[in-house]
Design a protein around this nucleic acid. Structure first.
Lengths: 226, 226
DNA sequence: CGACGATTTGAAGACCTTCAACCACCGTGG
DNA sequence: CCACGGTGGTTGAAGGTCTTCAAATCGTCG
């Protein structure tokens, strides 16, 4: 990726939401409806997709499952930058090498593309651009969660984020571990756990298993978020 | 911005750094060397450039001065998303309305463009795309600062970020107030002040006035950052 | 000089973390 | 069948970091 990567794209304005995967469903449908320009890959839980420092020749689109982008500090601290769900594109970096690790949160199926493919494929290019804009909006929302929120507000914001993935339904299925949530929110697993219990005690949510949360009062949660 | 915004661009891979304004100098030079496709505007300190919710028809390039993008929460808390310095493009949003406020940190000069201009102007489009990719990388770095760093490390990271703006020189001129720094780092002004004193006491920096900092040991600061 | 805002410093308290123990779930194997 | 061990999650108590509230100092501009 030395110098010129042609990047023409008719991009569709997605009325940018900061929430995960607005339009994710459409994109899933697209994957199924159209021939996929990339090759299909499978990864099992916690498997590395690429590593910080690897050659960033490819980027990926999630067909099914969930992927985390994370970074490790020298002393072992881990920071999760983002989660990618079905329809999301990730790994398209403006650099020779990846700056993060990408790992499968659970078993997942990905379509892989070469960065050079965006030169010829208008539709793909447009999707990549939309994806980058969406990532930017999400990253900004993430900085707000991390920068000026209490633990309870962070937890509420996280749940609202994930509730948006399945818009119809009140139940949120947390596919990631408490450690993943903690490293995403800049908390410890104990605090995450405590905040879950607190939100339940305060009537915001109810739980039927650690990873299955029902939102009892979405409006109130959203108020904590914004 | 209803649906199709043509977005073809030959973008140059800037070997993406997360630090502020890699290539800022080139872009400044470009501003001076080429006819500016946008109209020139001036803003005085603390003046609003646009507000959260305004129509996002335009975007801007900083010619001189510094701009902050920030968001206000209902209860008055403020979060600073990013600072934009000479050469940076900001306000190019994938939505009908801005999601943040943009304000002049100090007196500044901007070039303003309509979003539709990117359709015809290849060079501008390319710059916008590079800018978006750079913003994304910076936002990710910002989430890391906020998410898994102590106050001292945040302060060090911030100084390193600003030192990169004037790469040659050891002295950093902080154009923004302590409150701005605090709202960017998710700290209070008192903590920012204390960390400045601490870093000075520990020999990382020395100060000749509150906003003029000399980095005595850049390598050590960088170690705190990464 | 004097006044005002910005910054620094101090002391007490809140929130989150750390360290530790406990619980729930699940597959294995006796 | 139940005992056992392992993993992931929850809860409790003590401690540390950052915040809050308050006061002092610095800098700038009239």
């Amino acid at each position: 990726m030395s110098s010129h990567l042609a990047f023409p794209a008719n991009y569709t304005d997605t009325a940018g939401s900061y929430l995960p995967s607005p339009g994710a469903r459409d994109q899933i449908n697209f994957v199924h409806a159209s021939p996929i320009a990339g090759s299909i890959l499978h990864f099992s839980q916690d498997q590395e997709i690429y590593g910080d420092g690897d050659n960033a020749e490819h980027f990926y689109k999630v067909v099914s499952g969930t992927v985390r982008s994370c970074k490790f500090l020298d002393d072992g601290r881990r920071h999760i930058e983002s989660f990618h769900v079905a329809g999301d594109i990730f790994g398209f970096e403006d650099a020779v090498r990846y700056s993060v690790n990408a790992e499968a949160v659970n078993d997942c199926t990905l379509a892989s593309y070469r960065k050079t493919q965006v030169v010829d494929d208008n539709h793909l290019r447009s999707q990549v651009f939309s994806s980058v804009m969406r990532d930017l909006a999400r990253a900004h929302h993430h900085t707000m969660l991390l920068g000026c929120k209490s633990a309870r507000e962070k937890m509420a914001g996280f749940l609202i984020e994930w509730a948006a993935i399945e818009p119809g339904c009140r139940a949120v299925n947390l596919v990631m571990s408490r450690q993943d949530i903690a490293d995403y929110l800049g908390l410890t697993i104990e605090t995450v756990s405590r905040m879950m219990s607190l939100l339940e005690h305060q009537g915001y949510i109810s739980r039927s298993g650690p990873r299955h949360v029902e939102l009892k009062n979405r409006a109130a949660l959203r108020a904590l978020d914004a």
